[in-house]
Amino acid sequence: METLRKILKRKTSLIGAIILTVFFLTALIGPFLCRYDPLQTNPKQKYAQASSEYPLGTDYLGRDVLTRMVYGARVSLSISFIGVLSGALIGVLLGLAAGYYGRWVDTLISRLIDILLAFPGLLLAIMIVAILGKGIENTIIAVSVFSIPSIARMIRGVVIGLRESEYLQACKAMGASDARMIFSHILPNTVSQMIVNITLNLGTAILTASSLSFLGLGVQPPSPEWGAMLSSARDVIRTYPLASIVPGITITLVVLSFSMVGDGLRDALDPKLQYRFRGNL
């Protein structure tokens, strides 16, 4: 609770939190409140201007942009959450193993992480999607793989730091099992860093997904995904700007909010944290 108060004290985090709340609510409840079907085409209304009927205009097939943005929130939410959380899980396991068991396990896992990091971000995502195919499931997998290295590295660092601490040595001397050491003593110390890392990765995930869709490799039509909407409307940005500017700005805002909240979390939980930010598209 103390943490929550600290976060909300900063103005930027507050704004970020508000935007994110709107985002979550939109994703969860929004679809029930929408007038239109996001997939129903209506060619006669192609690229209509903003009006009371279509508050944000329509896209190239006459579908209401506002409705598709709302449904798109759901798509972005699922991709980022499922992707990042599963990646974080794998990352935590790998980082724990590497840090705790050391030696060849560490070398092996560290090199594996290096391999993952050696592939330039977007290009790694492209390769994964190219092998597995397009679509939302494989985009999630790409996002997941993306999120593994930074968490793994971070956890490993923490574990190595704690490994030699007196407290742990004492526990071991008293006969605590490996599992107990990991789950009761080490993990709780990593929670704060993990939360920060995950929050920031969520923002990156949305950027990754939209970049993939922009290149035509991610979520497939007619599913509404913000990056894909931006991509399909970019050819007409001069004549019908709304259709592309709206998704573009929304992506920016949501990713921004994740960063602001992540920042606030970091400051609140541990002001001295420093770690490397990995992906940037």
């Binding site: 930027t12 992506i251 805002l253 990713v255 994740f258 598209l281």
Partner: peptide, 21 residues
């Protein structure tokens, strides 16, 4: 605060969108 928000903004904008604009 302004600079910090600006920094965050620059990192959050999709590069292809920024390039287009």
């Amino acid at each position: 605060n302004a600079i910090m928000v600006l920094s965050l903004l620059s990192v959050s904008t999709p590069s292809f969108f920024l390039a287009l604009l």
